[in-house]
Amino acid sequence: MKSRPRAGQLAWVAAALVLAASPFAPGAQAQSQLLESVKQNPDRAKALCAQLRNLNAQGLSATSQQAVAQIARQENLSPMDAEVLTTYVIGLYCPDVR
């Protein structure tokens, strides 16, 4: 049975999408393209989910500073973009990740 996202996770995804879609937010166009790239490439999202699950197994939250910094380096993103990407991927592809 597939687990359903919790309300808190959905709120984070909604906030990330609003931020990415806002024409007034700095880097909004880049964030929108970033999220679209994951949406168009589910294998990339699955790979990020596996990486985030591995971080959880090591006792790290997927949204911790260390995890976000690792994703930012790996994906060549700013920390803010890495956090938006991580939140988006968790909300849509791996709600079991903490």
Rank of each mutant, 00 (worst) to 15 (best):
L10K: 06
A11N: 07
A11D: 15
W12H: 10
W12T: 10
W12A: 12
V13T: 15
A14G: 05
A14C: 03
A14V: 10
A15F: 09
A15M: 08
A15H: 10
A16C: 08
A16E: 15
A16P: 05
L17Y: 05
L17H: 07
L17G: 04
L17C: 08
V18G: 03
L19R: 12
L19P: 01
L19M: 08
A20M: 07
A20S: 15
A20T: 07
A21C: 06
A21T: 13
S22H: 03
P23F: 07
P23L: 06
P23C: 06
P23S: 11
F24S: 08
F24H: 07
A25I: 03
P26L: 06
P26H: 08
P26V: 10
G27A: 04
A28K: 00
A28V: 01
A28G: 02
Q29L: 08
Q29H: 05
A30S: 11
A30D: 14
A30G: 04
Q31Y: 00
Q31H: 01
Q31F: 01
Q31I: 02
Q31G: 02
S32P: 01
S32R: 14
S32V: 00
S32H: 09
Q33Y: 02
Q33F: 02
Q33H: 02
Q33S: 01
Q33W: 01
L34V: 01
L34M: 01
L35K: 01
E36F: 07
E36W: 10
S37M: 06
S37H: 08
S37A: 08
S37N: 04
K39Q: 12
K39L: 13
K39N: 15
K39V: 13
Q40L: 09
Q40K: 10
Q40P: 02
Q40H: 02
N41T: 15
N41G: 04
N41S: 15
N41Y: 00
P42F: 05
D43R: 10
D43C: 02
R44I: 06
R44M: 08
R44K: 06
R44C: 01
R44Q: 15
R44D: 12
A45D: 13
A45G: 15
A45C: 08
K46A: 12
K46I: 12
K46H: 14
K46G: 00
A47P: 00
A47T: 13
C49V: 09
C49H: 07
C49R: 04
A50P: 02
A50V: 05
A50I: 06
Q51M: 11
Q51K: 14
L52F: 07
L52V: 09
R53F: 08
R53M: 15
R53I: 07
R53P: 04
